[in-house]
Design a protein around this nucleic acid. Structure first.
Length: 696
RNA sequence: GGCGUGGUAGCUCAGCUGGUUAGAGCACAUGAUUCAUAAUCAUGAGGUCGGCGGUUCAAGCCCGCCUCACGCUACCA
């Protein structure tokens, strides 16, 4: 493996429209923090970059619905996120935000350079424009009638009623949500990054030169590359974001996915502009940027750039951003992108909108002083290779059976025994037996194992290995039984407790990346300063006669009630969600009888049914409508098997404009009832009426 | 439908280029022990390695088909 002089570590910029939850932590921030703390402990030159991603359409929508400005929204969440990260001990060198001026300048400059080099292609397309407020409308800002299900309030990108993804130009009677006026189509120009031109290079760079990337990352990249890349728009018509830095670009901003990763660069610049004021309180003293030149961290070949992200970000960090960097020309490329999978909560997907999450700020308030317990539980069960499940029962078990019983207990045993026999002074090391030599060897081996695991982004494994040192300590005490030996051979006990305390001191270093608060507490108990990684498990850090502080428990048991409270809270959320789901959609506006009577709805019967090839949802049906026998394509394959529904009596809208679907002309629409969960069922006449009977 | 990733002990996961009786942690059982937050230590039980078929002297690992989970993508009344 190449030896790098310095490290630039980034963690995905959280989107500033909501707080941080355990999914973000387990997937991105905890592993990134462990990695950086480890590197710092080893004295490596490293910067750890974070910040809020504050642009994009969802924030403008949230602002609009709350009747405040986008800036107010992002201010609120940025502060909240920043504070909870600090409290949780995520040791960013800087936690910046994409609304800072330095970011606007950096992103503009970046865009401008690519533009001037002719790296973009320009395309003119037609989009809706609101003449009243003189603005192009993002798809989300347009509502209208869904052409498929008739929902009156479909959004321009998606109909939330039937789940269909739409293009704004599909909507019937489009309406601007800004002014309520009818938008007009207008030509607009946008800039596209021609990813397809970089395909060959990307294939070589990823598929040939980075075979060591995690299989999920590598596989996802290969999938994208094999499907072929398309030019990607890097600008939007919007008034919230970094303005496109060109003369003819009024009302246009950089697409949030273009500007966000540049945020890593602008945050780095900001860090070096004013390093002193930026030191967050949670940063350990031995903080590390060893140069004062930000460019070294982004442009020097001897810098290792690592992006910690969740799996939803793979394409941006492995394909798009590297292409941007490559096109710009002066930047280095990521050496690795250790993307994690997702964390579920008690068996269900974490969901911000459904409030199905453990929110960091709430955890910190409800479990004060227990940052490390969550860090431990999330690391031990990190979704490194597949989606994992967080349960409160597991959280409790990790604390009680591992942190308390193995780590906390070992340290406490060594401390209590030393106070009991030697008044809290580190006793002298007398004659060492082969067992003590074995302990030294094993300790050193454990350290090497942790190093190897961490260098390869295997945090779960590394944590387990760190705990092995506490296990070793417990075993050592059980085997040597100092409480028995003391009566007949106190000299031997001196050696035993000396060694047990050395193990504790080494633990304070080896657990530091994972459990920084506990490491600090342990050092206080032992009354020692930080021990460097290089020294840990190499020399005995404690001097004979060194006075220890009073024993203090590193962890306390978490009782069932505390866990029950959390589970009850989630249960209440679930109940609320069910109630919300049970509320029927409000009645649509009145229609005239005339409008209704335009629809020709008939009783029909299904004659044949077959799956449409290469689709998941579609069945091709032949219906006897009483008028004729016709073909209808229906999206019900997830709920009905073709053979089950032949002969089924159904209700069909026969005069719906025919539409070609997957090359099949569909004449009409089968009426279905939809349940709250989106499942569908047929609507049939109660009696055996003849085909072609009209429904009125 | 296509592509990707995963399906190994009750739970969470290791298993390198195929090679002796498939491993670890937690949970469980038994024993030891009492310095310690009834914590610890030892031993043990527990697996047709998602299913079926194939290649091979030999497959958890290779190939084919199927199935389930998650993601991307297509198509979608």
């Amino acid at each position: 493996m190449k030896n790098y002089k310095r490290y630039t570590v980034t963690s995905a910029l959280p989107y500033a429209n909501g707080p941080i939850h355990i999914g973000h932590l387990a997937g991105v921030y905890v592993p990134a923090d462990i990695y950086c703390r480890y590197l710092r402990l080893r004295g490596r030159d490293v910067i750890f970059i974070g910040g809020s991603d504050e642009h994009g359409v969802p924030i403008t929508i949230k602002a609009r619905t709350e009747g405040v400005s986008p800036q107010q929204i992002v201010d609120r969440y940025h502060e909240m996120i920043k504070k909870s990260f600090e409290n949780f001990g995520i040791s960013f060198d800087i936690y910046s935000r994409t609304t800072h001026k330095i970011h606007y300048d950096t992103a503009s400059e970046f865009f401008k350079k690519l533009h001037d080099k002719g790296d973009f292609i320009e395309k003119i397309t037609e989009q809706y424009y609101d003449e009243e407020v003189k603005q192009f409308l993002a798809d989300r800002y347009i509502t209208g009638i869904c052409p498929y299900c008739g929902n009156e309030n479909a959004y321009g990108d998606q109909c939330e009623k039937c789940g269909t993804s739409l293009s704004a130009t599909d909507l019937i009677n489009p309406k601007s949500t800004l002014s309520g006026s009818k938008p007009v189509r207008k030509e607009t120009k946008h800039w596209f990054l021609p990813l397809d031109n970089y395909e060959h290079w990307l294939r070589q760079w990823i598929l040939e030169e980075h075979k060591e990337w995690k299989t999920n990352v590598y596989g996802q990249c290969k999938s994208w590359l094999d499907q072929g890349l398309q030019p990607r728009a890097v600008s939007r018509d919007l008034d919230w974001g970094v303005p496109v830095p060109l003369h003819d670009a009024e009302g246009k901003v950089l697409y949030v996915w273009f500007d966000a990763p540049i945020g890593y660069i602008s945050a780095t610049k900001e860090l070096f502009e004013n390093p002193k004021s930026q030191i967050p309180p949670c940063l350990p003293a031995g903080r590390n940027p060893k140069s004062d030149n930000w460019e070294l961290y982004w442009k020097d070949k001897e810098t290792r750039l690592v992006h910690f992200i969740g799996k939803d970000n793979i394409v941006f960090h492995c394909i798009i951003f590297p292409t941007m960097l490559k096109a710009e020309g002066s930047y280095i490329l990521p050496d690795n992108v250790p993307a994690n999978e997702f964390l579920n909560l008690e068996g269900d997907k974490i969901s911000t909108s459904r409030n199905w999450a453990v929110w960091l700020h709430e955890y910190l308030a409800e479990f004060p002083g227990k940052q490390d317990v969550l860090r431990y539980a999330l690391t031990a069960n990190a979704p490194e290779t597949k989606d994992n499940d967080f349960t409160w029962a597991d959280f409790q078990a990790r604390n009680n059976n591992e942190l308390v019983a193995i780590l906390g207990n070992f340290v406490n045993r060594a401390m209590v025994l030393t106070h009991k026999y030697f008044n809290g002074e580190v006793p002298e090391l007398r004659e060492e037996t082969s067992y003590e030599k074995l302990i030294y060897e094993e300790s050193n081996k454990i350290k090497k194992n942790i190093e190897h695991s961490l260098e390869n982004y295997r945090f779960r494994e590394a944590l387990k290995e760190a705990m092995d040192l506490a296990r070793l300590g417990n075993k050592y005490l059980a085997d040597t039984e100092p409480w028995k030996v003391f009566e007949r051979d106190p000299e031997r006990v001196k050696t035993i407790l000396n060694v047990a305390l050395q193990i504790s001191a080494n633990l304070s270093t080896l657990i530091e990346p994972f459990l920084p608060f506990t490491a600090e507490k342990l050092r206080n108990i032992l009354n020692i300063d930080k021990i460097s990684w290089e020294q840990a498990a190499e020399v005995n850090p404690l001097k004979e006669g060194h006075l220890l502080n009073k024993p203090e428990l590193l962890f306390n048991k978490i009782e069932d009630e505390a866990i029950k409270t959390q589970i009850d809270k989630l249960f209440a959320t679930k109940k609320t969600n069910e109630l919300v789901g049970a509320i029927s959609n409000p009645q649509k506006p009145d229609v005239s009888y005339e409008d209704f009577s335009k629809m020709d709805i008939r009783v029909g019967v299904i004659l044949t049914a077959e799956k449409v090839a290469k689709t998941k949802k579609l069945l091709k049906l032949t219906i006897d409508t009483g008028i004729d026998k016709r073909t209808v394509v229906s999206g019900i394959a997830e709920y009905y098997k073709p053979e089950e529904i032949i002969g089924k009596r159904v209700v069909i809208l026969v005069n719906l404009q025919p539409r070609e679907i997957k090359g099949i002309k569909s004449q009409g629409m089968i009426l279905m009832a939809e349940n709250a969960d989106g499942s569908l069922c047929f609507v049939s006449p109660e009696k055996d009426f003849r085909n072609g009977s009209e429904i009125k």
